[in-house]
Design a protein around this nucleic acid. Sequence first.
DNA 1: TTGTACGCGTTATCAT
DNA 2: ATGATAACGCGTACAA
Lengths: 336, 336
Amino acid sequence: MTLDSRKLAPTLEEVATAAGVSRSTASRVINGSSAVSPAVVAAVTSAIAELNYIPNRAARSLANRQTMAIALVVPEDTKRFFGDPYFAAIVDGISRGLEDSDYVLNLQLAGPSQKAIRYLLGGNVDGALVASHHAGDHFLSAISGSLPVVVNGRPLNLDEQDHYFVDVDNAAAAQSGTEYLLSKGRKRIGTIAGPPDMPAGVDRSAGWATALSEAGMPTNRLAYGDFTIGGGASAMKTLLDTWPDLDGVFVASDLMAVGAMGVLRDRGISVPDEISVVGFDDSPAATNGEIKLTTVRQPATEMGEKMARMLLGLLRGETIERQCIMPTSVIERDSA
Amino acid sequence: MTLDSRKLAPTLEEVATAAGVSRSTASRVINGSSAVSPAVVAAVTSAIAELNYIPNRAARSLANRQTMAIALVVPEDTKRFFGDPYFAAIVDGISRGLEDSDYVLNLQLAGPSQKAIRYLLGGNVDGALVASHHAGDHFLSAISGSLPVVVNGRPLNLDEQDHYFVDVDNAAAAQSGTEYLLSKGRKRIGTIAGPPDMPAGVDRSAGWATALSEAGMPTNRLAYGDFTIGGGASAMKTLLDTWPDLDGVFVASDLMAVGAMGVLRDRGISVPDEISVVGFDDSPAATNGEIKLTTVRQPATEMGEKMARMLLGLLRGETIERQCIMPTSVIERDSA
DNA sequence: TTGTACGCGTTATCAT
DNA sequence: ATGATAACGCGTACAA
């Protein structure tokens, strides 16, 4: 912009010279390491401000073998991922948890591809956060040996002791949601479950079944959805067509519940009078519709933040709990 | 995992040695630069495969002054950003446009803070993509002088010739949406506009006004929303309370339209019989509700992809059009 | 407390 | 076509 050639990045060398010290000393005050005389600290500090010095990330990485970057891996269809308010909240939490650290977030949208694995194993990041309904077990074991990794949601078939994750007790949470339906006097309760190859799918339907079993009720009224609105809608149709006597549904996600409610509305079935529905997540979707959704709340933002903090802890070399189970609660609204 | 100490990253040096050449030569074949004898290429290539060599990003950056990273800046409330399907599609497009490049995406969620500016100006990325309804003019001029930047949406008050952006012709698009309402015989057409400090807000309401003016109709039935469902709902209430004779609404985003339709439903006003509504975006939200939304489609995914391709072009040093205006179209469904 | 000197893994310049 | 060798900007033993 100016006539003289723009000098982009002042180096440590220049800062040191300006402060009348050596690079090493300047480096020390920047990293707050060992002891430096107050006078020198002041000199260097002001030189930094004067020159508007910004450390060169690449050089720093090369020297101390830290990238100061962490990957956010999304092994999910991108559109579906970002379309789900649950993930939006997770990401929000993650960015909160990271905002006063010096780490940068690298988005890995490609899914658990070879390219992604290579990237993660190539020493390009110091750690990884995996956000997905189904972090493939293969993917997880491929990277978690070489890199600190924190996942949202327990692994499906792997030993839980081998991985760091934050989750809720999906089974217990689903059970409480179903028990809520029971407490409302519902007798023929079905469920719209998540895919059986995802922990959130199997655990929540297990919780639903437990509640019913303990009440001495049958656990056959089940249909699968894929955690989308459309999937919830078609599952609801299946349910209604197969068991017309249904009077309650526990739905494994709010998004699917929205789809289900749409079908109920189309068929003129009143909620909650004829059929009560309980969702899961307490995402914005729960309160956007005409009927506010009674739902099992999971603290998504806090979970994202916790994931970030756990990873930061690992990167600091701390020993931390391998899993963090966050609390859930039933939010009573109008649909049940 | 194994008993012998894991050797993490083979260096170029080792590859060169294994191939019986010098580092320089090995480097050449890796970068496909200048001429190397076929035999040597083969040797090095196989050595790379053998050792599973992955170039060190930091070292490379340090040497050639390229970070091979580009920033995705989101100067928006994180939750709102990811909650909007329009942005989800933009991000999806961006990741598509980048997937067969060697660039990595760095998420800058902090908003247009000083920290973000420092990061961008600190030589940590080679370019930036800004995705927002309102990339603050200040923010833009702060960074666009020092870094290739592509924005989604024209700047509000800056000289358009100074910036690269991809957008639609919001005014023309809104005008066509409004004209559609006119063609349906609507006589008293209002609008729910976006915030007047965002281009998408002012341009779309301008287009609405143009259509009405040309039809000799008044342009006073206007209320502002904030591009959220809730904002659309309260704007609709305002509209109805102020002009009860309304028979059509052009809404500046599908999300707001969803909110508006909720209010209409609550008040027992039938859509499209009593009031027709036309949205904007053609996001998934348009077809999730009970009444499928007639809307002005903008190709969000393609826009994101285009943004990425433009930036890649700039980074290659190509001379490209400063702005790309993508086509829109009215999608006829059930709400109008 | 401070400075010297070397190493981090690559690319780029210059010979050969 | 290939190989030394010097940067690139910084951290850090080691010495002083």
